[in-house]
Design a protein around this nucleic acid. Sequence first.
RNA 1: GGUCGCUUAGCUCAGUUGGUUAGAGCGCUGCAUUGACAUUGCAGAGGUCACAGGUUCGAGUCCUGUAGUGACCACCA
Length: 704
Amino acid sequence: MDSKFIPSDHEKKIYDFWEKKGYFEAKIDPKKKPFTIILPPPNANADLHLGHAMYTYEDIMIRFKKLRGYSTFWLSGADHAGFETQFVFEKHLKKQDKSRFDYDRETLYKMIWDFVIKNRGTMETQLRALGFSLDWSKTLFTLDEKIVSTVYKTFKKLHDDGLIYRSKRLVNYCTFDGTSFSDLEVLDKEVEVERGLFHLEYSIKGGGSITVATTRPETMFGDVALMVHPKDKRYSSLIGKIALIPVINKEIPIITDEYVDMDFGTGAVKVTPAHDFNDFEIGKKHNLPSIQVIGFDGKLYGTGTKYDGMRVAPARALLEEDLKLEAKKHTLVLKTCYKCGKTLEPLPLAQWYVKVKPLADNALEALKKKETVIVPKKFEKHALNWLTNFHDWNISRQIVWGIRIPAWKCEDCSEWTVTDGQAPSSCIHCKKSNLVQDEDTFDTWFSSGQWPVATLKALGEDYFNYFYPTSVMETGYDILPWWVCRMMMLGIYMTGETPFNTIFLHGLIRDSKGAKMSKSRGNVVNPMIMIEKYGADALRAALIFGTGEGNDISFSEDKVRSMRNFANKIWNMGRFLMMTRHSGAQAIESQVDPIGHSVPSRMTIEDLEKEFQTLKKQVMKDMEAYRFSSALNSLYEFIWHRYADFYIEQLKVEAQSGNITLTKKLEEVYLDSLVLLHPFMPFVTEALWNVFNGEERSILEEQL
RNA sequence: GGUCGCUUAGCUCAGUUGGUUAGAGCGCUGCAUUGACAUUGCAGAGGUCACAGGUUCGAGUCCUGUAGUGACCACCA
């Protein structure tokens, strides 16, 4: 044995051995209880980041349950990550001076497909490097035929049940990336704009004028009314009169609504239903038309002025100059694209929506009935809050990288025909066959929201029946609304049963000072570098040790180093025991009498055994209650500070002098501790298991 | 404006249902080195558990309030 544990000498070899032996392959075994976790599928073409290493929690649970005799299944997969991936690919195209508009839909799709396949392997290699006991024999991809087929069927079923509708309303649209987003994908950026709030003067037909405050004078071409508070005395004489839009002199009415805040700006507001969410609602309420003057390319059109063809920002600047607008400093919250960071434009667009309420109500009921339990408990309130406040869900995306929506529009009667994937031969409304498929694809979360059901179904009904509902859904709390809640809603809708019995949420990783990790801060840590330097066990243990479940984690290399030291300590304890075997044997040969030492040592070794039993009880209790940090802490404390520092020091001389019974018992407790520790630090424990029990044996065959 | 958190040793954090002298890792101080391990061992310093009230035989833990701090949601003409 080396005097140091060198992870790289063991990790790859051990993992290959595990895989070769098929330890991670799920088996349907009616004699055993199933324990299932579905890995949140990482983006197929991206490298792993430290956040992914948090799935260590899942590996801990799977390995623990395997040792407890369950038939475990940790299902691996990869996500096509629709918009994310297309965005990366478009950047890649841009480097070659190309854009997505240079290719037709099919070519572009094929190109992205090849791009993803080419990059896919790295992510899987990295998950292996972390030691994850995933079943690679059943890996699925979100665009696999069987998955897609399930997604189609769900869409069709939702549509037939009246839970899907098509509606033209305002969406958050990125005119640079050319797609809309759901509410959840929009970033709010608070900015203070030096010249943010403009005073815009509208003349009144028949004399006089009224000044409104607006941040967006360029949308005035789409104005359909001006609006004041009904109780605002300043304007009472103007109510019902006609105002004229500057430049184009178009006539619009002055109306009243209590929505107006008399104290803000001038107390008078312009109403532009096509380009503002609130105005859209006001427009509906007052039966006003909606006039779109900004296109999906972010340029003005249809105003009949020189501003046509200009992008929004320059048009605003030019208007400010032309009309000599008075402007004030103003703080506003801009809705920006979470990818490119540019300002989103509210634009009217027809999209498919999911009627969320009935689905959310079922999920709420499952939570209330404890069919699904959330750990830590504090997140239950979050989930309840989300599920009661979800808006209807826009699932249309204007990108090609994804599952194309199986809906065809009739060129003759303009009605839609929805199928479960097959192109219909004729319109179900007018029976004519002039049909065109919707260009849009599904929001990635619409398909990944069906992941637990779709994957197990894809493996076959027998797998589904045995492993569904899954045992634990483990993921970061940040995607509770995006993903977890939606899996519950869709999973229950598809099967009548909640997709998982427990939701376990982990915190986000921050740097050693508690700041968010981001590329721009330059504090991002690559998990693979940590593994190279300290070993996978050290990284895994560092993420669990001394952290409250569900709390954010301050990551520091110091902690990884100290866990590396722990792995090394355990290794050297094993080395000591092996050496003791030999020195003990030699002592007997040289006829040193071991019996003289046996009485006091037997007392101490029994204390150790007793202490271990207490520890084991505690650890088992913690593991079942999802207190992994506490379990690891107890193990660390026992192994290092009790077993090594205290008992070995006490019994050292005697063991070496040839007390075989003592040596054996020391080994037993040691090996039992390794089994308990194995879920946390699989490599070093397995390496030691091989030292004591032979290369062909695995700690994974033990029972707890 | 709403919701959920957080405030414990120099730093980063644990502390399960309230129960003896409040813990860990790192850091710090002193000592120890051919003996399993210096990626080590032994000894030690360091905390009025944010503050103020309350409940209790007993509060870091429960309740109320105050201050600071963070995340998310909504609104913002």
